[in-house]
Each structure stands twice: as C-alpha cells, then as structure tokens.
Design a protein around this nucleic acid. Structure first.
Length: 602
DNA sequence: TCAAAGGCGATTTGAATAAC
DNA sequence: GTTATTCAAATCGCCTTTGA
C-alpha cells in the first residue's frame, strides 16, 4: 500500500504555527476514502482539504473568541466530523464549505436523522450535535479562513427531542463481579507476580547466554526448549502449553490488567489518569494531626483542567495499589529504558508480541485496549462468575463508579474480602487532614451515600410493618405509613435530610439511624463501628430499624440457629449463643408480624 | 501459516460551564 | 435551579499486520 499522506505544514502561513513549531500530534490521515473510491488526498479535493486543514489548525493557534486553544483530542474529534462531512458533501456534489447554506445544512440534518446509530434506529443527540457543532465552530472561524460555512447550523436539540435517542448512564460493577475481580487481581499481584517477572528475567538471561552460540531458528529452538522446562505460575490458565514464550507474554499482560483493576477499583481515578501515571508516582506524607503516614498516588487530571497539561492530583493509595505500582514499575522498566519515557503503561506496537523488548516502536496503552483486555482476557483468566445468566461487560469507567459506591455506602456486608482496604481508604478520606485533590470524586462518593440514605428513608416511611426501636419511632411519626410512593414522600425526605444531616447506615439485616450517644456498637463521630456492628448488637440498639425487606435475613437466621440447637454434639456455650440468637430473631420477626396484624406497633 | 494484538473510524457518554 | 452548549473522553466493531 502507498504510504499514507498526512498533513504537511509547508502551505500553512507561518504565524498560524505559533512558536512551538510543527505540532506532531496535529497530523491527520487525510488519505481517507471518498464515496467515489478516490482518496481525499487526491488532487481533485485539494481546495476542500486545504480549507479543512486550515480550520483545524486555527482551532489550536487562533481559537474562536474567548476560547482556550483546543486540546488535540478535541481537534481529533473535529477531524472525524470533517471527514464525515467531506464525504457527504462529495456525494451531494457540494464542492466548497461556503456552499453549506441553510438548505444544504438542512439536507445534512435530514440525513443525520434518517441515519441508524450503533445500536438502534436513531443517533443520540450528542452524536448529532457533535456533527453540527463542528460545522458551527467552523462557521465561527469564518473571518479567519478563505472557505468556511456561511451560516451556523441549527442546534440538534432544536430539531426535535424525539428525533434522537435518549441515553442512560454508566453502571457500576455489581458486587458479585467486583469482589472476585478485585480479589483475584490482588491475589495475582502477590507471589505469582514475582514469579512471572522472575521468569521474564530468566528469559533475558537465556538470550544473553545462548545468543553467542546460536542464531536464527536454532536460537529460538534452544530458547523455547529451555523455557518449556521452566515452571510458569497459572500455567493451566493458558490454553497452549507448547508456547512458553507467548504464555509468558500473556501472563505479563495479565499482570498489567491486574494492576489496572486494582488501581481503578481501589483508588477511583479515571482510566485516562491511570494510564498517564509515571515511574515514582507514589508519595508518602504524614498527616498533620497525628503523624500517621498515608501513601498517595500522584498524577494529573486533564479532563476538568483549564490548563494545557492538566492539574496535579493525589489519590490515597491503599496497600494493594502500592504493590500494583511496584509491579508496574518492574513490568515497564525495560521499555522505559528503551524509549526514555517515564510512563508506566508502555507497550510495543507489534502484533504477535515477545515478552522482551523488540525493535518495534513503543507506545502508551490506551483505554480502548484496556477494555478489550479486561473483558476478553482478564475476566476469563480470573473465571469471573456470570451475572444474571450472562457475561458482565467490564469497562474502564466502572472502576471509578464502583469505588465511589463502595466508599459511599455503609453496607459492606457483601464486601468482606475487601473490607480491610476499603475501610482504610474510607477512614482516611473522611479524615479532616486528607489531602487528596480529586474533589469531583468526593462529590460522587457523597452522592452515593445520600442516595442510599434516601432509599432507606423512603422504605422506612412507607413500610406498613417496621421493627427495631428507632424504626418504630420514625414510622409512628410518618404521615405516609402504608402508602405507596408519592411525590410528597420525596419532599418530606428532602426536608428531613436538610434539617438533620441524617445519614442512614444500611446493611443486610436492617437500617441504622445513627446517633452516637445511643449506639450499641460504640461507633464514632459519624457512623457505626464496623467491627462490633453485628445482628445481635443491632437487634437491641436504639438506632436500629427493620422492614419487611429484611425479613428473609432474620428468618434464615432463626432457621439456622434452630437447626443448630437440634444437634447433639453442641457444647453448652454454643447452645446458649444459638438460643439467644433465636430469641432475638423471634423478637424482630414478631414485631414485624404485629404490624402485619393490626398496623399498630409498640 | 495463523492466532491474536491493537490501530482506526464511528459513535456515545460525562461533566464543566454558560445561559435561561 | 434547570436546561443548553461545549469540551474531553470512553466505547466498540472492523480490519490489518506480524512474531513465533
């Protein structure tokens, strides 16, 4: 294939280039195919192409009034839209951008409306607005350019809301998936990680020793034979035992995946932020208060930054994350040395890849690839369970969402395996001396906590049957008891929350309307003590509330302990404990039933 | 020779900020 | 306090390329 033409800058007026010279990142593949089979780089498109090139360059060096110079990712987005537009213009025989008058743009909009989206009949509003927005921006730059659209296109929203597909939101990873995923990743980063990296070093050693004696195919044959004799951790999870080199490359990649997972789910950074991390990004600092030392992950956030290179940010790094960074530093060491870059996610472009550096160019890992790796390789590797009969699709964004949910909610009953790490981060983040700088993440966390409280309150206020001291008290005052949901409840809850700054603790077996003075679990300033917070402690606590939603937990507890007392081999102490639990469960269930019978509780 | 990495184009979503 | 607008990514499927 002919070499791909890219934008050249010889025809660009010098002042447009600014003082940084030619920006390497601003080259685009203008040789894309046109509807008639020609290439946009062919002579017949020269006028259109130059106009488009100048437009894109102007966004960087002479942006529209009042705007920052656009980032290269944004300009890349405009390039995609221009390509789309140029193809459409060619098919419609529109030869210059200045011919994009109202009628022509109207036809363009009609085409967008009729166009099917990725997974449905309609395009989303933002896709359409993306296309029109590029034309609008082009139009805004018209005074600086020879050829530009003479009129601003309409807003996609003004075309009619029902013309476009509405969108939902990104999910968090459900606990059934998240817990084995994170636990599996942490486990892999333990001893197996050390062994796998040692095996890579062993391979490097083998090459060094055998290269003087053999070359070409024979060298490879000897290397392969030697590697076949080396044990590889998790070898049974790679399908082909005859390929020890590919297997090693595979394992090294899985280590990287595990590092990404641990960082994403236990830190809450965005994928782009994680992938920008560099060697030496861990920072130790003591908090002023008590001299306790926290370790932070230091990186940059560009998404919400107004500056070109992003702002410095810190995230609290629990122990597994520190370990992940150490592993990453060792994983990326050879390529960092080869390329002179400091990034921790370097990899080589080359397809069938070698576990050792080759002659191929080095590049940073990008998030689309991370998604593929998480779903198609790490998930089967860790044998993640199905979710509701199907395979759960992981995405890089779920780490952040799941993290904020983990931290924001008080119910950690499903997360026992992660409790240690999450508890540490949670404590530190709610500490006054916390120095992290991802404010938006803190808001996301608070949102999750508030949403949980709101749901619990709604349940308590509407439930016809409530047990537990605090629950009974709240329910008796509720003007909504036994009704189905209505807008009034929402307003009432909003009022309660505004007045009391109340935070409900939620767990499998009930709710906690937390007040420190009366907490049976001896909790702290703001929330229950997770260690002493058990069913027994809660059942007698003044802060406790139960609704029918929790009935199955108490019924199961009753059943379990009843079965226990019927065994002959039970010692006296255990029997007494089981009896006590039976009584507790009976009391809670009786309270719920009583409400059932006459709607009045004591 | 070929499995599989990952680049690339197209589309979708998130969130800050501006406008109402 | 909402809604609209804009910038900045993230996601996803197709397709080319290549080390073993």
């Amino acid at each position: 294939m002919a070499s791909v033409p890219t934008s050249t800058f010889t025809q660009v007026p010098a002042p447009l280039l600014g003082n940084e010279g030619v920006p390497a990142a601003m080259t685009f593949n203008w040789g894309f195919e046109m509807p008639d089979g020609s290439r946009f780089s062919d002579d017949q498109w020269t006028l259109l192409r130059h106009a488009a090139e100048l437009f894109l360059l102007s966004l960087r060096h002479d942006p529209p009034e009042g705007r920052m110079p656009l980032r290269k990712e944004t300009i890349r987005g405009h390039f995609s839209h221009i390509r789309f537009l140029a193809r459409w213009m060619a098919a419609e025989n529109v030869r210059r951008f200045r011919d994009l008058d109202q009628d022509t743009v109207g036809r363009f909009v009609a085409m967008l409306r009729a166009r099917p989206g990725r997974n449905g009949a309609l395009l989303s509003l933002s896709t359409a607005e993306g296309h029109l927005g590029t034309i609008r921006t082009f139009h805004m730059q018209r005074d600086k350019l020879d050829d530009a659209p003479p009129t601003a296109p309409p807003r996609a929203a003004s075309v009619g809301k029902r013309q476009w597909k509405p969108y939902g939101g990104h999910p968090y990873t459900p606990d059934e998936i998240a817990v084995p995923l994170i636990s599996g990743a942490i486990e892999l980063l333990g001893d197996p990680a050390d062994q796998i990296i040692a095996l890579r070093d062993r391979l490097a050693d083998l090459y060094e020793r055998l290269r003087p004696r053999h070359q070409g195919r024979m060298l490879h044959w000897h290397i392969r034979r030697a590697m076949l004799a080396e044990p590889c951790p998790c070898a049974d999870r790679y399908p082909n035992p005859e390929w020890p080199l590919r297997r090693l490359a595979f394992m090294l990649d899985r280590l990287g995946d595990a590092c990404f997972t641990v960082i994403a789910y236990l830190v809450g950074a965005r994928a782009s932020e994680i992938l920008r991390l560099e060697e030496g990004c861990l920072e130790r600092r003591a908090t002023d208060e008590d001299g306790e030392e926290h370790v932070y992950l230091v990186g940059t956030i560009t998404k919400t930054s107004l500056t070109e290179h992003g702002d410095l940010h810190r995230w609290l790094a629990p122990e597994p994350v520190q370990r992940a960074i150490h592993i990453l530093e060792r994983l990326s060491a050879p390529l960092r040395e080869l390329s002179g870059e400091k990034n921790l996610w370097l990899q080589q472009l080359g397809r069938g890849r070698s576990p050792l550096p080759t002659m191929m160019p080095v590049a940073r890992l990008r998030s689309p690839m991370v998604n593929v790796r998480l779903n198609e390789r790490l998930a089967p590797f860790l044998a993640l369970p199905d979710h509701q009969g199907g395979t759960w699709r992981l995405t890089t964004y779920q780490g952040r969402k799941t993290f904020s949910r983990f931290i924001g909610r008080r119910d950690r009953t499903g997360l026992t395996a992660l409790q240690r790490h999450l508890g540490h981060v949670h404590r530190a983040m709610t500490d006054r001396a916390y120095v992290g700088t991802d404010f938006e993440l803190a808001e996301l966390i608070d949102e999750q906590a508030a949403e949980e409280t709101r749901k619990a309150l709604e349940d308590l206020l509407l439930a016809p049957h409530v047990a537990g001291k605090a629950g009974v008290m709240l329910s008796e005052r509720s003007p909504f008891r036994g009704r189905t949901g209505s807008g009034d409840v929402d307003a009432y809850i909003t009022e309660i929350l505004a007045e009391t700054d109340m935070r409900l603790g939620v767990c499998d077996w009930g709710y906690c309307l937390y007040r420190r003075e009366t907490s049976a679990c001896l909790g702290g300033e703001r929330e229950p003590n997770p260690v002493l917070r058990t069913q027994s402690t809660c059942s007698s606590c003044a802060n406790f509330a139960v609704t029918d939603r929790h009935r199955p937990v108490w019924e199961a507890r009753l059943e379990r302990n009843t079965a226990l007392t019927q065994r002959d081999d039970l010692d006296a102490e255990s029997r007494a404990l089981a009896e006590a639990r039976i009584q507790e469960s009976l009391r809670i269930l009786a309270q719920l039933d009583k409400g059932n019978a006459d709607g009045v509780r004591d």
